[in-house]
Amino acid sequence: MVIIENSSMAFKLLNGVFCIYKPSDLHHRILRWALRTNLCRDLNELPRASAQSLVKIEPPDENSSEYRVTTVPDIRDHPLLLGPAFEKTDFNIRIAHFGVTEMAGVTVCGVGARGVGALRSMSHRNPVCTYHIQGKFGLRTTNYLQTGRVLERTTFSHVTRGRLERFLTFYQGQFQRHIQSSYGVDPRSQTAYELRARGLVRPRDDSLQLIYRLKLVDFQPPYFTVEVHCINETDTFLMKMINDIAEDCKCSAVVTRLRRIRCGNFTLEHALVRSDWTAAGIITNIQECAVAADREMALLDEPFLQRIPAETLEERERIPNVLRLVRE
């Protein structure tokens, strides 16, 4: 446990990656403003570092024939002269994967030069995120959300839990084939087996959305909840996926709740609730998230599979090592 003696010490400790729980209907700009406001308020309430004394040399006078060295308070460091020690612009805060305003859940942030730099590096390789998406059958809107303008109303009494789970399994298989096609590998080849045997396979292109798992966690018509493990996702992609699944079930659906429960190595256990968005809470959270941040940074050195150009698929099958292990 770190004992904070003054505001300058607290400001130096605000340098790293931390995790918060973002409420829904909160824009990322308002979120950044709230964090800066809380940090500025808390640090200005802490005592300042002791002001330095001003050394003064007095010449000889009628009472003394020698020079005298004395110290007096330096009024240049007086709070009434300087004003508040910190302003909102003194805190450099970066937010990763903020999504739409309606999205809630785990949000990774960085503060200070070290935190912002680490967060920028981690953003180059999008982490695998987990979402709980709640949908509602029977509606179709302009923006795939319940708050959008209604375009269509459909019946959903024919949709059962088993039927919905079968479509989710089908969708999961379709996305798994995309990762192999991005490397130009036949799914039935030995090369594809070796590709999957290496562990979690990430898409070569950062613009390729990939779903690793789809699971139905709750089904109470008209509401249902789907757990999604994905990478390179966008909010529009996730909401449209719910709409597409409902279309395959011969109905329509909208998103009523979008919640992220995991972002890479950061989980709900790391996330700070809104009442803990204080200087003391963030400093403590930076230390608690250090292990998760180090694991995310280690992914930057993870070997990546790169495709070797070949003329045809048959020629690639004749080459023993079609894929080679390189470091980006």
Rank of each mutant, 00 (worst) to 15 (best):
M1N: 13
I4K: 08
S7V: 06
G16R: 07
F18R: 06
I20V: 12
Y21G: 06
K22Q: 08
S24H: 12
H28I: 09
I30W: 02
I30S: 14
R32W: 00
L35P: 06
L35M: 13
L35C: 07
L35H: 08
L39P: 05
R41N: 13
D42E: 06
E45M: 14
L54E: 15
P59V: 10
P60R: 10
S64Q: 14
S65Q: 11
E66H: 12
A85M: 11
E87F: 10
F91H: 07
N92D: 11
I95R: 05
V100P: 10
A104L: 02
G105L: 02
C109F: 03
G110V: 01
G110A: 01
G112C: 05
A113W: 01
A113M: 00
R120A: 04
S121T: 01
H124F: 01
H124Y: 05
H124V: 10
N126V: 01
P127D: 05
H132R: 10
G135D: 02
G135S: 02
K136A: 01
K136S: 03
Y144Q: 07
T147K: 01
T147W: 00
E152C: 08
E152G: 02
S157F: 12
S157K: 15
H158E: 12
H158M: 10
R161A: 02
R161M: 08
Y171T: 05
Q174M: 13
R177Y: 12
H178C: 08
V185L: 15
V185C: 11
P187M: 08
P187H: 06
R188N: 15
A192F: 03
R196P: 00
G199S: 09
R202F: 13
R204D: 11
R204C: 13
L210H: 12
I211R: 01
I211G: 04
L214V: 06
D218L: 09
F219C: 03
F219H: 01
F224H: 08
T225G: 00
V228G: 09
H229Y: 09
H229L: 03
E233K: 00
T236C: 02
T236A: 14
L238D: 06
D248C: 14
C249Y: 03
K250E: 15
S252M: 05
S252K: 11
V255E: 01
R257G: 07
L258R: 07
R259N: 08
R260C: 09
N265K: 05
F266G: 04
L268D: 11
H270E: 12
A279W: 11
I282A: 11
C289H: 04
A293N: 05
A293Y: 00
D294R: 04
L300T: 01
L300W: 00
E302K: 13
P303T: 09
E315T: 07
R316L: 08
R318S: 12
N321Y: 12
V322N: 10
L323Q: 03
L323K: 07
R324M: 13
